[in-house]
Design a protein around this nucleic acid. Structure first.
Lengths: 388, 388
DNA sequence: AACGTATTCGCAAACGTTCCCGATAGTTTT
DNA sequence: AAAACTATCGGGAACGTTTGCGAATACGTT
């Protein structure tokens, strides 16, 4: 602990020069310079414990060969005779050598690491995508570094900077709902680092994207409700800053229009659906004088909240109210009645995104600005099956 | 693409020496050496696109100062005058400088990265632990690299090696159910890299551990069943290679003994409970001539499987059969009747493990071989509430 | 004028690898 | 016997930072 000789503080002390065996410091708070005898410093500044890690050079020295030889032997280079290779391998095992990936990364300017930024972890969607991506990347010998933007644009920016600083070989990102500027992403293109958007994508920048067919899925869900005899269908949607919300809204509208249903604007609500918000909106909808006879929710947790409210109010599901969600959370299968929903291929999304980024990492040019659309599945359960 | 001039293959071609403007190669498959004119090689070997990243040196050159000055200016070292610092910052922004963390890591031999190895991702337990740890680490300026051992001892070993190679500053690990040798972990102690076991721990090595009170939790669960009038309670347990399974079994037995219930050995089943296994064991238990009137399962998915089997067989829950699970998966709240279970503080486990490792990373000595035990909570729902 | 101190910068050695360009024998081929 | 080739190894630069140890001024103070 270095203490300022004037104010006595220990925080905010900075190194500042050196003079004849004395370390000089600057106390930032009181802006005062002072010197300390070096021997005192060495005891005051905590010595970081730093065991010696055996390196390639150690092996080279004990064997009396050059480090190039050791390096090549360890990598199975053709130039090395079987005898020396074996000797190197033996002493490496003997000295308990572990390669230093950091040095390797520095010289190759390649990390064998793919970065992934997701907005949140709380609903099971992103963990599942991670499982899929993780599996593919691990098999290919890559590591996966995960960061969480926590739905904050600022955090997303700092995340991307950290990814750049750590020199990931590629980045998979699902955008924040706040994100409407994309300069922090175009940096990757300038640097030649492949970038793939998945799930939460945007149209503004021209990079590979992996999404599900949100429009068709919503269309399918709403049409399913209509075909089961529901007439006045409300939509509890997500924030319109998200393309997925826009698409699902579009699908809802298209299905309604196709079947000649009028869309009542006060029954289409968009917003960030926390549990409380979902409850408020749901109560609003179910308290309406002419309440809807079905609700298509943008995700399962909102749909389940609707079901709970309906139960409290004594509204029978599915006879008096049909409900369809989106995502097929695990609980949706077990709630009674089961929640009809759209199953998204989360694992597949992770896998195909990962496979794609691996291609791009090794690609010459990364101008394959395509878009991969994965198909969903309508899971029909009790919540939308009117007995009629 | 380099082709072997003998066998024509392109796979398995290795660099081998160099001679007068010619690159030499070895075709591994047919073990044949051959040379190629260097200019042909340069077109044949795909040039890795490699944009120049602006470095500290670039800034130094454009400003006519030394790189030490630039480095210090970027870090706010006290030695640098405000003018030059500003100049450095300006040109850094102008040249779009991004620090190279790899070089930093190499020279500091510190990565600001914590590694985490989990056996699986499929049940929500580990993702939740990750959320907690991630939050704490991010706030402290650390990155989190996650690997998955997939319940395989061999994969766990290769994961730990990769963690070592990548020089993580600390490791959080939850063991595989196969793991019964711990040499791959003692390496970390030799290297002075802090290591914490969580959830899936072992007694054989002396490192910090974070667990829940499995014994007390199981005791609590079984006692709850007994107090609700259940008599013949079966236990569907996990593999006994896992300490958690042992502890929960011990808790089950202790509760039974305390209340003078006889433990019928054929009603205590241990094993790796995949869905199929759970179904097989569950059917066995419920087909018994004198079947149990309650089952304490080691996890919720097994408990839910039991409930489904009971429904198929027309066994009423909770009147004819009480069921208690472990973990409080999301679906457990929504199944009918609700599943009584033990809620584990997953987020807290992640948080406290992360906080602990951060302390250890900066600690002088890491001999605080303690054990942190987190408390669980019995969530009582319908599946164990006999109406009687 | 001499000297002590403040302030600001630079040199160069690490950190641990990879890999280009040879070098040096021994072995064939012409 | 010269030339070409095979088989193994080494020297040393490069990757981009940090930082110990000063040096070189500028400014006061006796």
């Amino acid at each position: 602990m270095i203490k300022c000789v004037k104010c006595g503080q220990v925080e905010g002390i900075m190194k500042a020069g050196y003079v004849r065996g004395k370390q000089r410091f600057l106390c930032k708070p009181c802006n005062y310079y002072f010197t300390i005898q070096e021997k005192d410093v060495s005891t005051a500044v905590q010595q970081k414990r730093k065991r010696h890690q055996t390196t390639i050079i150690d092996i080279a020295r004990t064997l009396g060969v050059s480090n190039s030889t050791v390096s090549r032997a360890l990598h199975g280079h053709a130039d090395i005779s079987p005898d020396t290779r074996q000797a190197v391998l033996d002493t490496a095992a003997l000295l308990d050598y572990q390669p230093n990936q950091l040095a390797y990364n520095l010289v190759k300017s390649r990390t064998n690491t793919i970065g992934m930024i997701v907005p949140e972890f709380h609903n099971p969607f992103f963990p599942n995508v991670i499982i899929g991506a993780h599996e593919v990347l691990t098999r290919a010998g890559y590591n996966l570094t995960i960061m969480q933007s926590n739905e904050s644009y600022q955090v997303e920016i700092s995340n991307t900077k950290a990814m750049l600083a750590n020199r990931v070989d590629g980045l998979l990102i699902s955008l924040t709902q706040e994100t409407n500027n994309f300069d922090h992403l175009s940096v990757f293109e300038k640097r030649g680092i492949p970038l793939i958007l998945f799930n939460r994508v945007c149209e503004e920048i021209d990079v590979p994207k992996v999404v599900v067919n949100d429009f068709e899925s919503a269309f399918m869900a709403v049409e399913h409700l209509i075909l089961n005899g529901y007439e006045r269908i409300a939509h509890l949607g997500g924030p319109l800053t998200l393309l997925v919300s826009q698409e699902r809204l579009r699908g809802y509208k298209a299905a309604m229009q196709k079947h000649g249903k009028t869309i009542e604007s006060h029954m289409v609500i968009q917003g960030m659906l926390t549990q409380q918000k979902a409850r408020i909106y749901g109560q609003y909808l179910l308290d309406l004088a002419e309440r809807p006879d079905a609700i298509f929710a943008v995700n399962d947790s909102a749909a389940i909240e609707i079901m709970l409210i309906a139960k409290e109010k004594g509204i029978a599901i599915p006879d008096e109210l049909g409900v369809v969600g989106f995502s097929d959370n695990p609980e949706s299968a077990y709630i009674g009645p089961g929640l009809t929903t759209i199953r998204q291929p989360t694992l597949e999304m992770g896998q195909s995104t990962a496979e794609w980024i691996l291609q791009l990492v090794d690609a010459e040019e990364l101008n394959l600005h395509e878009r991969k659309v994965l198909n969903t599945e309508l899971i029909v359960r009790g919540s939308s099956m009117r007995k009629s």
